[in-house]
């Protein structure tokens, strides 16, 4: 019988599992259903504004009917507090618990996938989804905006005007900002997912934590806590819509999310590295 080759896997093989993870994630009907639901948000916003555009609504509604590209920004803003954390909760909560409940976790580990490698790959998968989700909202927003309204150069918050290409850059930055914002929550979901073999439980717990953090962020009595909440900078992307771009909130947000990744990633490792897999 042939002996196994030396253990140090060449890079191409190290990424094989990540490729497989992404293909499993994006071949699930559930993933596409969630992305479709997210795409529906800007579409509904666009249609609603189109129907009621004659009346005097809030300023952003007027902005939308002047320039359809704003539908994407509005759609993203509306999705941030609930819909995006909901989908992230599902994906991140499912990471380990989902494999455990299917029983595939034991086969992955016996393959053998190192436990640390599996955690990293699972987290990377959730992070890719965290980027895909806001991108889908933005793209759907641009699409429906272009369909229902005139589009043209976009006026930034600082008063300058950028063309379509400038808008595209800002939109991508915005997607990146939101994706980074969701990384801390993803890490929490990963950790919760190592605690149970019931994926729905891990999903629910993650989503509840996302809601709780946002509620705590509104209580003035807890203002000392606010800068430490992972949801604190979720709406801080306005700085990216100025010229020149102010990177302060992006940096603060990234640092905070990094802290959450380190803390909950560490907890997930501590829990999962030595856990008996009995499912």
């Amino acid at each position: 019988m042939s002996r196994a080759e030396p253990v140090a896997a060449p890079p191409a093989r190290a990424f094989a599992l990540l490729g497989s993870e992404l293909s499993v994630l994006f071949r699930r009907r559930r993933t596409w259903a969630m992305l479709a639901a997210l795409a529906l948000v800007p579409i509904l916003v666009g249609i609603a504004v189109r129907i009621r555009s004659s009346s005097n609504g809030p300023a952003f509604l007027a902005a939308i009917s002047d320039n359809g590209l704003f539908v994407s920004f509005t759609g993203l803003t509306v999705s941030i507090p609930l819909f995006l954390p909901l989908t992230i909760g599902v994906v991140a909560g499912d990471t380990i618990a989902g494999e455990a409940s299917l029983g595939t976790l034991r086969y992955l580990l016996v393959a053998p996938t190192g436990r640390v490698r599996l955690l990293l790959v699972k987290y990377a998968g959730a992070a890719v989804f965290a980027l895909a989700a806001p991108l889908v909202v933005l793209l759907a927003g641009v699409g429906i905006g272009a369909l229902l309204f005139p589009i043209g150069p976009v006026t930034l918050l600082s008063g300058n005007t950028v063309g379509i290409d400038g808008f595209a850059v800002r939109a991508l930055l915005l997607a990146a900002y939101v994706a980074v914002s969701l990384l801390g929550l993803s890490a929490i979901g990963l950790f919760v997912s190592t605690l149970t073999t019931v994926p729905v439980g891990a999903m629910a717990a993650t989503i509840v934590l996302a809601a709780a953090a946002q509620i705590l962020d509104t209580l003035p009595q807890l203002d000392w806590l606010h800068p430490w909440l992972f949801s604190h900078y979720w709406f801080g992307f306005a700085d990216l819509l100025r010229d020149p771009i102010a990177w302060d909130s992006f940096g603060q947000n990234a640092l905070l999310q990094l802290g959450y990744i380190a803390f909950f990633g560490g907890l997930a490792y501590g829990r999962f590295a030595t856990k008996d897999i009995l499912s």
């Binding site: 196994a4 080759e5 253990v7 093989r13 497989s20 992955l108 053998p112 996938t113 599996l118």
Partner: peptide, 10 residues
């Protein structure tokens, strides 16, 4: 294919 990808030397 998924489980084979999880086996590093494969």
């Amino acid at each position: 294919r998924r489980l084979d990808a999880a086996d590093p030397p494969s």
